[in-house]
Design a protein around this nucleic acid. Structure first.
Length: 729
DNA sequence: ATTAGGG
DNA sequence: CCCTAAT
């Protein structure tokens, strides 16, 4: 009864009956859980499986002749770096699956007995991001991005696909260490660091192949820079300090070099050393979104992996922690990145076949693949202890430092937000990985094509030289698509504008698409409401003006016509003209086609809507509607004043009102953005006061008929309510 | 589907 | 703007 009264009468005498409920949704949205579920199986799971399988297959194959030519080896070896650099230097380079460390040897009884890393089939690949100095300087230099908010540091990003059981791939955020999620305590991290890499890193073991090789790559720890952007302004896409970005990995460059340690250490510092504003949110995301996924995963690969991990680390505190973290076996960790020029190219594909001294890695940090040595010489006694291993076949110990990821070209307007960029890159990468990919094996820079050969036949033996073996990620031929763009969209890429930016966005989820291009096209089309111009629009159309703000004068009118509305038209033009494009630019040999991974483009996309500031006209309309309808009737407000503004949901309107109210209450100096006329703010204040009173009154006096009618008929202009004088403005 | 609030 | 809980 009371409620009905409130609904039927406006404060100034208007009678505003509730509008019958519409059946259509204001905006099609994918349920939270569904979105998450859709990302359960990431491309990386697949990758992991492929990689693991491949490696195992090779290793377990019966030994035979070594078909590898030693002469060729040395020759290739010399040219190795150059060759890689040549074919690897494109616009955007996504290097790698950074497996910073390969497993520990099993000479340590303690280790092997309880930590035998049996990750064969389930190694997980996480994605994280990093930036290399060289990339940055070479590609972007001081180029500005997004209205100068993000400058040079944003350049030259390199995307990393990390591997290892402790690397997590978080749908929501790819750069936040899990530790922030309390999965690991600081102490535990410290311990882990020390145990796994601290020794190695600090003492700089000479056994490190790279050191000996004379081309020590600069190891860079992502350090504190690996953070999600802050959300200080409710908009993760804008205005946040560069250093909060997960790009200034280069900062660790010197540290690493000075230490002389070239061995990648997965975790350089405790995560705690980098508290950030965004942490809270990330944590929440991880907790509420990410973690929920794991338990429900039905993926065989995943399960298998989990089991392996479990068996391998069940006694580790770290693992326990992980497990306690909702049964999700992944953990974010810092990653390293080689920044030296040699690394940006030649170093990209790195690996190493060598016997890693048992003390070298105590491996808790990332383990991609581990199959320890067999019986040989002095270690034979140990082998006996490890019955799980084949004691007859010598084992090759591999350390995969990184994978080369097919290069991508991404075109994105300067006005795009960093978040958009992140998403774009992530999706580009995911598209490739998700399309079904294979792992290529390179020996001495030469591709090993025969999968049936044994490692020994191929030349991969424990006696190999360092850097002899390399791995690369390749699209799965079976998934290859002859056409990058089925829809006929322009696929040609402007190679003149390669924006080597890459970083995985926290916003995006792990999805698989044929390609970014396809994805974008589909995405726009699938949107129930006007396509979200996204990153593309803001600069494309009105680089220096307010692109998204409809003309205040014709807002109301245009508002009635969807297609004619300024925003809508804007959306269209930009959408069509500037589709996001990301074409894998890989060597013809390696990646002749883009993997096709048919998936529902829409159902799994949870993209943050682009920010669309309310124009004065919209504010006006909103205020007017609220004055009449009152607060708490946002659906009606929407229908009444924004029915044709597809991009404004009632929630948006409610939020806007909230911000308007806040704006009205703060001093003009504190206000930002397009100034809202004081007159409107006053009305907001008044309307709010009025409706608040109404609500209070109706709540307290449970008597429906007491005074509402009277109030409505006499209040307006009567001065009965002190706060009402200005409401009508 | 809406509303109310926290983030 | 997003995300949720509660209607």
């Amino acid at each position: 009864m009371v409620l009905q009264k409130r609904l039927d009468y406006g404060f100034n005498g208007y009678q505003v009956p509730a509008i019958p409920r519409a059946t259509r949704s204001a905006r099609k949205r994918i349920p939270f859980r569904k979105r998450v579920e859709g990302n359960q199986i990431s491309a990386f799971d697949l990758l992991a499986t492929v990689a693991g399988t491949l490696l195992l297959d090779k290793e377990s194959s019966p030994a035979s002749n070594n078909s590898w030519n030693a002469e060729d080896q040395s020759a290739i070896e010399k040219n190795n770096v150059k060759e890689e650099r040549q074919d690897g230097d494109q616009s955007l380079k996504l290097e790698t699956c950074n497996v910073s460390e390969l497993v520990p040897q099993t000479n340590d009884p303690n280790y092997s007995s309880r930590e035998s890393p049996s990750l064969q089939n389930g190694t997980q690949f996480g994605v994280t991001s990093a930036i290399t100095t060289s990339e940055c300087l070479e590609r972007l230099g001081s180029q500005k991005l997004i209205n100068g908010k993000i400058k040079n540091e944003m350049g030259g990003l390199a995307c990393k696909v990390e591997t290892g059981p402790f690397v997590s791939r978080t749908p929501g955020d790819c750069v936040e260490p899990v530790s922030e999620n309390k999965v690991l305590t600081d102490e535990e991290l410290d311990r882990t660091n020390k145990a796994s890499t601290g020794e190695v890193a600090d003492k700089c073991p000479l056994e490190d192949p790279l050191v000996l090789d004379g081309k020590p790559p600069a190891v860079v720890s992502s350090d504190s820079s690996i953070k999600a952007p802050s959300f200080g302004e409710h908009d993760p896409f804008i205005s946040f300090p560069v250093q909060q970005y997960d790009v200034n990995v280069v900062s660790r460059d010197d540290d690493e070099k000075s230490s002389g340690c070239t061995h990648p250490s997965p975790i350089r510092e405790p995560f705690r050393s980098t508290p950030r504003i965004g942490d809270r949110r990330i944590r929440k995301i991880l907790a509420s979104r990410y973690w929920k996924v794991a338990p429900r995963s039905k993926n065989a690969t995943y399960s298998n992996y989990d089991e392996n991990l479990k068996s391998s680390y069940c006694n580790r505190s770290t693992y326990k922690c992980l497990r306690s973290g909702r049964n999700f076996p992944f953990k974010k960790r810092k990653f390293l990145h080689y920044t030296s020029e040699s690394n940006s190219d030649g170093g990209t594909i790195s690996e190493g076949i060598s016997d890693l001294p048992e003390n070298n890695i105590n491996g808790k940090a990332s383990i991609l693949y581990s199959k320890t040595h067999g019986v040989t010489g002095e270690s034979s006694s140990l082998a006996d202890q490890h019955k799980s291993f084949n004691s007859r076949d010598p084992h090759v110990k591999l350390r995969i430092k990184s994978f080369r990821v097919p290069e991508l070209f991404i075109e994105i307007p300067e006005s795009a937000t960093v978040g958009s960029l992140k998403r774009t890159v992530k999706e580009a990468v995911t598209a490739i990985l998700g399309g079904g990919l294979c792992v290529g094996v390179l020996l001495q820079g030469k591709k090993v094509r025969d999968d049936n050969k044994t490692l020994l036949q191929t030349g991969i033996s424990r006696d190999n030289q360092m850097d002899a073996l390399g791995f690369s990620l390749e699209p799965n031929p079976s998934h290859a698509s002859p056409s990058l763009c089925p829809g006929g969209s322009p696929l040609t890429l402007p190679h003149d504008i390669p924006l080597p930016l890459a970083s995985l966005g926290k916003e995006a989820n792990f999805l698989s698409y044929n390609s970014i291009l396809i994805y974008e096209a589909a995405w726009f089309k699938c949107m129930e409401y006007p396509a979200n111009p996204g990153l593309v629009n803001q600069v494309t159309c009105h680089p220096s003006t307010e692109p998204c703000i409809p003309n205040a004068g014709n807002f109301i009118e245009s508002n009635n016509d969807c297609t004619a509305s300024p925003t809508d038209m804007f959306d269209k033009s930009t959408t069509e003209s500037k589709a996001l494009v990301a074409v894998p630019a890989m060597s013809v040999e390696t990646l002749a086609a883009v993997p096709v991974h048919k998936k529902s483009k829409q159902s799994e996309v949870a993209q943050r809507r682009i920010r669309r500031p309310f124009s004065i006209a919209e504010v006006e309309a909103l205020v007017q509607a609220v004055e009449k309808l009152g607060t708490g009737r946002w659906r009606d407000v929407k229908l009444r004043a924004f029915d044709n503004a597809k991009h404004r949901t009632y929630v948006d309107l409610k939020d806007k009102w909230k911000t308007l109210l806040h704006t009205a209450r703060i001093s003009p100096q504190q206000r930002r953005g397009e100034p809202v006329p004081q007159e409107l703010l006053d009305r907001v204040l008044n309307a709010h006061t009025y409706w608040s009173q109404q609500q209070a009154k109706q709540q307290q006096q449970q008597l429906p008929e007491s005074c509402l009618p009277h109030y409505n008929s006499t209040m307006v202009g009567s001065g009965r309510c002190d706060d009402d004088e200005n409401i009508l403005g």
